[in-house]
């Protein structure tokens, strides 16, 4: 290659690069238009308020969990060492271990609490993930890319809420009824609740919110007129392990309703 050809090649590279750059800008602009015109539910900070008093029939939480797990192709593995769970129930003393007291009322002691990923404001799982397979979206949702996860389980050591499950065995052998709309996971990756990002993108509320028939309120904490903000304003609430500074986005209202405030 002589000097002239070399310069020509450099120039061609430059033009090509500019074209690619322009193209990517064009794509971005298109994406922005799509976002605006679609019916997607958008928010600054998605959060849930769980009215625990409305979850007290024995199977209330189990039904919600079953709906979630069915929708997301979560396998049903009975061995507690290998089980996968996105939302499930725990009692008060395990959900709020640090608030345990011998003088706790029998009523509260026997209450069931739905527990799930807290979609923290400062998520330790996102901080420790070495591949950004777990990441926080601009709307506050802590989501995962199951195709990027290497299965190191650092996020499970970092999560103080036990919200994450690892696919120790092939999950596809344990899915009773496959939901063809959504993917299932492969062996060797971590998974957890994703606040139903797939449904939000279509303008629908999360499965558990729908199944809970009003016992779980879902909305935008950044919007002062949202229902979640109104409920939080009118009720005393607790969150799990706030002392750790992760900023959980799941709020529990214990006595429930406006009257219980």
């Amino acid at each position: 290659m002589n000097r002239r050809d070399f310069l020509k090649a450099i120039a061609a590279l430059g033009v090509g690069g500019a074209a690619v750059y322009k193209g990517s800008n064009h794509l971005k602009a298109q994406a922005a238009v799509m976002k605006k015109s679609s019916e997607a539910k958008l928010a600054g900070h998605w959060a849930m308020v769980i009215d625990v008093s409305r979850f007290q029939k024995p199977d209330d939480i189990k039904q919600v969990a079953a709906a979630c797990h069915r929708f997301h192709n979560v396998p049903k593995i009975d061995d507690p060492d290998h089980e996968i769970k996105w939302i499930w129930q725990e009692d008060f003393e395990h959900t709020f271990a640090e608030l345990e007291s011998q003088y706790l009322s029998e009523k509260i002691k026997k209450m069931d609490f739905p527990v799930l990923c807290n979609h923290c404001e400062n998520p330790p799982c996102v901080r420790v993930c070495p591949t950004k397979a777990t990441f926080k979206r601009a709307d506050g949702i802590v989501a995962m890319d199951y195709h990027r996860c290497i299965g190191c389980r650092f996020c499970m050591a970092a999560c103080p809420f036990g919200a994450r499950s690892f696919n120790f065995i092939d999950p596809r052998l344990f899915i009773e009824e496959v939901n063809p709309e959504l993917a299932s996971r492969t062996i060797g990756v971590v998974e957890k609740c994703n606040f139903c990002v797939e449904r939000l993108a279509k303008g629908q509320e999360p499965v558990c919110v729908k199944a809970a028939k009003g016992a779980i309120i879902f909305g935008d904490l950044d919007d002062p007129d949202s229902t979640v903000r109104k409920v939080l304003n009118e009720n005393f609430f607790i969150r799990r392990k706030v002392e750790l500074g992760t900023g959980p986005s799941i709020y529990y209202v214990i006595r429930g309703g406006v009257a219980g405030a």
Binding site: T131, I150, R153
Partner: peptide
């Protein structure tokens, strides 16, 4: 210890 050893290079491809 990796659940997906084939993706080990993601440590380098997506440095965090």
């Amino acid at each position: 210890d990796l659940g997906q050893p084939g993706r080990m290079l993601n440590l380098v491809l997506h440095p965090t």
